[in-house]
Amino acid sequence: MLNLRLYMLQRLTALLMAPLVLGHLAVMIYAIQGGLSAAEILGRTQGSALWFTFYGTFVVAVSIHGAIGLRSILHEWAGLKGALLEAVMWLAGIGLFILGARAVWAVTFA
């Protein structure tokens, strides 16, 4: 159910996410000091190539990593297989990407 390519994709995206998760947590702790407002967040992210790259990469990695992880769980715990398993994996990955990409786009350009 997992071949080498899916395995490597999941491991490599995990490698990518490890520093991003730590960065994300650090910024959250830093950002809530003295209250949190939409204006403050947007002030940091709007038009910022750095934050666009940071969260853009994060969203791509999460979509791939999460979809493959769900694939394993759905196969082993729910018995999904074949075309249905492929479809659910792609749907989960594309869904996660659309949700995340929309948010990244909004805080950077909208």
Partner: peptide
């Protein structure tokens, strides 16, 4: 060992 039932499972 790299196929669908391989070691990566």
């Amino acid at each position: 060992v790299s196929g669908v039932g391989g070691c990566h499972n």
